[in-house]
Amino acid sequence: MVVEPGGSSTTDIGAAYAGVISSSFESDLAFRVPGRIVSRRVDVGDAVSRGAALATLDTAPFQIASRSAEAAVAAARAELDQAQSDVARNAPLAADRIVAAADMARFETQRDAAAARLKDAQARAAAARDDVGYAALRSPIDGVVTAVSAEVGQYLAPGQVMFRVARPGTLDAVVDVPESAVANLRPGQAAQVQLASGDGQPIAGTIREIAPAADPASRTYRVKVALSSAASARIGMTARVSFASQPATSNGQQSPFRVPRAAIIQDDKRRPAVWVIAGKGKIALRSVSLGQMAGTDVSITSGLRRGERIVTAGVHRLDAGQIVRLWDGRLP
């Protein structure tokens, strides 16, 4: 292989990765209260505006609960009025010691308890009034409905997703990148997105987000590439994404070379080394410094120069000064 900064034998950073076009901003919408759906006003593909009602629940149970809560507020207020009257009527008598101090303390305690019960009833009534408003599910953004998961007549629990609304104007290309290549990616790095639906020009993009952890099943990292323009891209389209290589690190030094671990051998001083192919196919053993390992690859931090060709297979069968030739892909 010819070594290049950031290159990899198994996964070249310049390779194209299959992905899908999705909205940069999506919202899963659900009712905050339980109930039976009585109307649904939008379907998949419909454009919605912020604050528009998308669906409603049967409000009868919430209205009954609200009236009950208001009645509880009235009862608590009457109790407080009675307790305040008892305190006001007995205060002069307590001052003249006609009413015992213990009885006066009891009246004051009853007054304070009645005031607390009134506050509790008022809070419950406010929550009941809010539940009546929550029976209508409204869109929090201007967007388009991309999924509907419930129908009229269905009973929903609180938080059960009914709609997914996305902003179609800001799109991402979402791809899963193997661990052998993700180390070479950085937020803000340039990318090219080619839609699978046609032969149009690639869409320029930049890396917006790199997942901090790998998927536990596939061991790949999800990367989101923000498209510079929507062009002909639509949510759900398939695409192939390629990333621009970064030949230099943040401190201005050349980034490490990535080579197969099978290319590493030890020299006579038991230091890591590789077979470098010189002019006319003659090989020479050269010591190198190793960096991090990722999958079947290892990074070489020093000892090689960009553009040099190394041996990646059969390294233990070679001797210094041997003449090798490039494999043309044919079996002997």
Rank of each mutant, 00 (worst) to 15 (best):
A116Y: 09
I98A: 08
Q189G: 08
A65Y: 05
I210D: 01
A123T: 11
G45F: 07
R32S: 13
L304W: 12
V48E: 02
I300C: 04
A88M: 10
I310G: 01
G35T: 11
V315I: 10
V165N: 06
A191D: 03
G7S: 15
S289D: 13
L93N: 06
S23L: 01
D319F: 06
R208M: 00
V99T: 12
A191H: 09
A128S: 07
G303T: 11
Q246L: 14
P216R: 04
D86T: 10
R89N: 14
A135C: 03
I141D: 03
D130V: 07
D172P: 07
G200E: 06
G159A: 03
R270K: 13
T56G: 10
V33K: 04
A294Q: 11
P332I: 03
V144L: 00
L318W: 03
T301I: 12
P5I: 05
V148K: 07
G252C: 04
V38Y: 02
P5Y: 06
L304I: 10
R219F: 13
G303P: 10
T146A: 06
R41F: 07
A196M: 11
A181S: 12
A244H: 07
S66I: 02
E4I: 05
V33L: 04
K224A: 13
R41T: 12
A18L: 10
R167Q: 15
K269Y: 11
A127F: 11
D142N: 15
S229P: 01
G252P: 05
R208N: 12
L227F: 09
D112G: 00
G6R: 03
A126R: 14
L80T: 08
A102W: 03
G169V: 06
A52V: 14
L93W: 13
V145Y: 08
A204G: 15
